[in-house]
């Protein structure tokens, strides 16, 4: 039962503010992607700032957190250090990515973002290309059409440009 009514605020004003912020954010993203796409700090920083402000107003007013007591607030704020901790724990995976032999997402073509590695030659547990080694130590070219050859970003030249095999595409 709610015997005491919590304070009410102007829904209309907040609604207009949130819609205006969303419109401004989309416009900023559109313009940013066309004019200063390379400046990630400016583009992403601006977009995340818009998201933060919108999230703040939803959290504080729509979710009524501004008017809650210490118990409800404490229920939520304990997650903040956990979020920070989680991000810190994940960070090495990102920071050390260039030190990995096959970093995350190395199967992406930087030009069009299309996958070039055939899925049956990818170790799904590690998301890397496994060409397979024969008994004589050589690595065969992948049995796939030449247009689907692996496009890898690695220091190993044998993996970068495997020799095409003319007829293997038909078997596949």
């Amino acid at each position: 039962m709610s015997d005491e009514h919590p304070p009410q605020f102007s829904v209309k004003k907040l609604w207009i503010l949130l819609l205006a912020l969303t419109a401004a954010e989309v416009a900023y993203g559109e313009i940013g992607n066309r004019t200063f796409y390379e400046n990630k700090l400016l583009l992403w920083g601006g977009l995340l700032s818009f998201a933060y402000v919108k999230g703040y107003y939803i959290f504080q007013y729509f979710m009524h957190m501004k008017y809650e007591g210490a118990i409800v607030k404490g229920n939520v704020w304990f997650t903040l250090p956990l979020v920070v901790y989680f991000m810190i724990m994940l960070w090495p995976d990102t920071a050390a990515n260039d030190k990995l032999n096959y970093g995350i997402g190395r199967q992406l073509d930087p030009n069009d973002g299309v996958v070039k590695v055939h899925l049956d030659q990818v170790d799904s547990s590690r998301n890397i290309y496994i060409p397979g080694e024969q008994e004589d130590g050589t690595r065969p070219a992948p049995a796939m059409p030449a247009s689907e050859y692996a496009y890898l970003y690695t220091a190993d030249p044998e993996l970068v440009e495997p020799e095409p095999v003319a007829d293997h595409g038909a078997d596949h």
């Binding site: 939520v76 979020v83 989680f86 991000m87 994940l90 990515n97 995350i104 997402g105 930087p110 970003y153």
Partner: peptide, 20 residues
Amino acid sequence: IMFFTGLIGTYIVLRAGSPS
């Protein structure tokens, strides 16, 4: 919050780790 933090955090790691 923690559930979506997991999803978003993983997305950030995968994206930041990708060459493109």
